[in-house]
Amino acid sequence: MKFKKLALAGAMAIGLCSAATAAETLRFSSFEPPVAHVTKNILTPWAEDVAAASDGELEIQMFPGGTLGRSPAQQLKLVEDGVADIAWVIPGYTPGRFDQGSVSELPFMIPSSAAGSAAMWSMYEQGLFTGDYDKFKLIGIMVSAPNGLATIAPIREPGDLNGLNLRAPGPTMLSAIDALGAVPVGGITGPTIAESISRGLIDGTFTQWGAIETFRMGEVVKNYLALPLGATPMLIVMNKAKYDGLSDTAKAALDKFSGAAFSERFGKSFDANVAEARERTRAANPIAELVPDEALARQWRDALAVATTDWIANTENGQAIYDALTKSIADVSN
């Protein structure tokens, strides 16, 4: 009898040990520093929520600060190669992929991260984002708050940009820069913007206050034009084979906090941080901000209209995608 009790106790201990080690660990890559807003206040809490909902079947380990790959341009490949299971991806760094989502880069299209992110997920649910979008488990399809223009020299009218070297994080915004008579400069990722400005490689960049703070641009830019000159599309992608191999409970935990739920979490938090970052950055740095009146804003809208016309003409199903996103933004904004 004593032996049976010992055997039973041993079996229970083995069972408990197995249960304790049964959790699947997913590797989540972020190019941002661990204290930056998106990684600290959006991605990390999301990972914790998913793990808590998985009944012990999932752990999500964050790898911030480029631990698995430093460049934002590497993140998609990390997932494709299985180095990371999940990653935060900026599609503009991989031109030719996810191009349908570049509609969000069009000037005067996206009013806020919250509205834009909700509308972008709606586009995917409507089947309007296909191709590369279908190759991954999509946790989220989002956009930044609209980008203004951060520069060294003061910029007021579109003509002031003639001949300046300007950077943007995506091909559609680069096209807008070209339409303004400036020289579009691609291939400069967020972490290298401040250095590129200080070295004279670029005169400014399309960006928003959260990125100015995160990537320490406040130390080099002196002026900011507050116009919605296009948002930066973003994705949270997961290796599809990895997702397919998970248990139903683990999949359910991921699905619960993905899609529309992730868009809402991301957009609200992103917009709030941009407003707070603006106050912090302007308090710490002598940056002059110009908020154009209606007449001046119309000048910019007219000067940039060709970017929208060209995008529609050069994108398969472009007019339908543009019209659908316009409607989706109106729907979620009401």
Rank of each mutant, 00 (worst) to 15 (best):
D81I: 08
E264M: 10
M12L: 15
G82V: 06
R298D: 14
S112H: 08
A303V: 05
L254H: 01
D331F: 01
N41P: 03
G56E: 04
M12C: 13
I321W: 03
T189R: 08
A303Y: 04
T326P: 03
K137D: 02
L166Y: 02
A252E: 10
P146C: 12
A53I: 05
T281P: 13
S144G: 02
T189P: 07
P111D: 11
L26I: 06
I86N: 04
V185H: 03
V220R: 10
T232D: 13
S263H: 02
P228M: 08
N147F: 08
W209V: 01
T67N: 12
A119Q: 03
L8G: 08
S113L: 09
Q319S: 10
F262M: 03
L164F: 08
G96N: 10
R265V: 00
P34N: 06
E125K: 14
D132R: 09
M123A: 05
A150S: 13
D134G: 05
M234T: 10
L149D: 00
L138Q: 10
V332C: 05
P91H: 11
T130S: 13
F129R: 12
A145T: 12
M1V: 11
K242F: 08
A36V: 08
D248Q: 13
N317Y: 07
A288K: 14
P228W: 02
D49I: 02
S198E: 02
A252F: 09
P107H: 09
K77P: 01
E32T: 05
T130N: 14
R278M: 15
